[in-house]
């Protein structure tokens, strides 16, 4: 890290697995204040955490009482079971609130964690999508539209407030000790795959994404950055390395199974996510490697080791 050793950073959504990973790393060099509406288990004692919903008034006082050097905005809900309206209001209204407070209180830097899923898996995708590719993820998958709207909102903010350095990170599937869809999928003993399809996939280690956040804190860094880890591999290769026995089913059967499973609450996989194990959605992260100096440290095997490691807290 450069000289900004005593800067004060607000981390929203600190209770999540990823939020805690960010906090654990950043608190070594920075003063961290975390907010979350959930309880926060097991964080170092010097991290102050407020139990707050970012849509509430109380958040305004947090900005009045503190002068932040940066905000790391991770408070983005990805719960497929939550109602669409809740999802939308939490993600978009919440983000808007945080951004407007940052503008009013002159926070010089905001870092947002979006995702490479905003591009969406499509048969006609370029093999490696750059940051200016259209965000087509919502075409067949409604539940991701709020993430796209959020990403776009942050992009407009970038132009409305040139005095603030806005950084939007779009990592590929973060895999490891986190509770997101790709990690849950890889933890399954018998994951479903689509008969006759084996797309190339990119995965990245939690700690490598945290490193990218750290690198984004450097003054002068702004813009949209794709992030990916080691070189892409076919989905079947990941499953082979994990010793999984995939259940290969024809696509219509897979969709019907998921539909029934979803209705009966046996599974939490939304049916349109089938496209993710059918088509490629990969990114070119050369901009991040050039501008941020980003380099992934964890290879495929190191990432996969974490999938089955100790149970999540």
């Amino acid at each position: 890290m450069s000289g900004e050793s005593s800067s004060k950073i607000l981390v929203t959504g600190i209770a999540g697995h990823f939020g805690r990973a960010v906090a654990r790393r950043l608190h070594r060099h920075h003063t961290i204040l975390g907010i979350d509406r959930r309880e926060v288990p097991g964080l170092p004692k010097d991290i102050e955490v407020l139990n707050l919903d970012i849509r509430r008034r109380g958040i305004e006082d947090v900005f009045r009482l503190n002068s932040f050097d940066a905000v790391v905005h991770l408070n983005i809900m990805h719960d497929p079971r939550a109602r669409q309206e809740t999802h939308h209001s939490f993600n978009i209204a919440g983000t808007q609130k945080i951004f407007e407070l940052c503008a009013r209180h002159e926070v010089p830097k905001i870092i947002v964690l979006s995702s490479a899923d905003v591009y969406g898996p499509h048969p006609s995708n370029n093999q490696l999508l750059t940051e200016d590719a259209p965000l087509m993820g919502g075409q067949n998958f409604g539940a991701i539209r709020d993430l796209i709207a959020l990403d776009m909102y942050c992009n407009t903010f970038f132009w409305r407030h040139p005095e603030i350095e806005t950084v939007i990170l779009r990592p590929v599937h973060i895999v490891g000790r986190v509770d997101n869809a790709p990690s849950r999928y890889l933890r399954l003993e018998r994951p479903i795959t689509i008969l006759g399809f084996d797309p190339m996939v990119q995965i990245v280690h939690v700690e490598d994404v945290v490193t990218a956040i750290e690198e984004s804190l450097h003054p002068g860094v702004r813009g949209v950055y794709n992030l990916s880890g080691p070189t892409p591999v076919p989905l079947s290769e990941l499953l082979r390395r994990l010793d999984r026995r995939p259940l290969r089913v024809p696509e219509p059967v897979a969709r019907a199974m998921l539909k029934a499973g979803w209705s009966l609450k046996v599974t939490d996989w939304p049916v349109p996510e089938v496209d993710h194990i059918k088509y490629a959605c990969m990114v070119d992260d050369s901009r991040a490697r050039r501008d941020l100096g980003f380099q992934h440290r964890y290879g495929i095997d190191a990432i996969l080791e974490e999938v089955d490691a100790k149970p999540l807290l």
């Binding site: 048969p123 006609s124 995708n125 093999q127 689509i194 008969l195 006759g196 399809f197 084996d198 797309p199 190339m200 076919p234 024809p250 696509e251 088509y279 490629a280």
Partner: peptide, 18 residues
Amino acid sequence: VPTIPFVSYVLARCGQVV
């Protein structure tokens, strides 16, 4: 081509590109 079962990945493994 990427939407056809089997053909999609067999062609990719053989070096064919969309």
